[in-house]
């Protein structure tokens, strides 16, 4: 059984259908990439999975439980964290306050402290700047904070929306190294990216989304050599 199953999902914005029947699975331990151009519906799918949007029809099943109608604020305690597009850190709060909000639903203080130390170890820059106001961090640091904040909930699966957006190539590499190490640490990853090349380079499998439909799916290594993918997304 897959860890996360999305079945025939249809989502509307008013009368406009953004997602036209999307199904995919994420197995435990995998890194799955959802790639596609701007406006293909990638962010909409993530928002529907974590309850920020409700679908018109279809279902989302996480670890055997139907979570389609579970409200957004109850998702994180099920073991699913979402790093939203544009980071959305709490700009007026400090780095530490942001991280602690990531552990909002957890109660064991010692375990929270352990997670905090793990996050600081993974992102030493956040430890250096723990009292800095998040809005004054650079884009890359904010991305790290958004990821660290999500990891503070100790998720079994982490959904990441465009982590490379607006970052320099060096930072993009750094962020993708971190995603790989999060995955190596046992967390399942669902990655949404416009940067198809980078996404495919670390993913096990990938789904290609075009105007609300999955048009192609398969092993990332196979897709990387697919001619249509090369032409449309890899710029070759």
């Amino acid at each position: 059984m897959a860890m996360l199953e999305v079945n025939d999902l249809k989502v509307y914005y008013g009368v406009i259908q953004a997602i036209k029947g999307v199904s995919f699975q994420v197995n435990e331990g995998e890194v799955i990439a959802l790639i596609g151009a701007n406006g293909a519906g990638k962010t909409t799918i993530l928002h529907t999975i974590t309850g920020l949007l409700s679908p018109h029809s279809g279902s989302v099943v996480f670890e055997g439980t139907d979570i389609t109608k579970v409200p957004a604020h109850k998702i994180v305690s099920l073991g699913m964290a979402h790093v939203p597009e544009g980071r959305r850190v709490f700009a007026q709060l400090s780095v530490l306050q942001n991280l602690m909000l990531g552990a909002f639903t957890r109660t064991d203080k010692n375990e929270i402290q352990e997670s905090l130390e793990e996050v600081y170890k993974r992102f030493p820059r956040l430890a250096e700047r723990k009292n800095q106001i998040a809005g004054t961090l650079s884009g890359g640091e904010q991305q790290m904070l958004a990821m660290g904040r999500a990891l503070m909930s100790k998720p079994r699966i982490i959904l990441m929306d465009e982590p490379s957006m607006g970052l320099s190539p060096i930072l993009v590499n750094e962020i993708f190294d971190i995603i790989q190490s999060v995955s190596a640490g046992g967390t399942t990853v669902l990655l949404v990216e416009q940067n198809a090349k980078k996404a495919l380079s670390i993913a096990d499998r990938a789904y290609v989304l075009e105007t609300g439909k999955i048009v192609l799916e398969g092993e990332a290594s196979v897709l990387m050599n697919d001619d249509s993918i090369k032409k449309a997304y890899l710029g070759e």
Binding site: L52, A72, V76, S77, H82, P84, L101
Partner: peptide, 11 residues
Amino acid sequence: EDQGAAKLMGI
């Protein structure tokens, strides 16, 4: 600051 992000934190 951000209702959506707050929901994702479990608030």
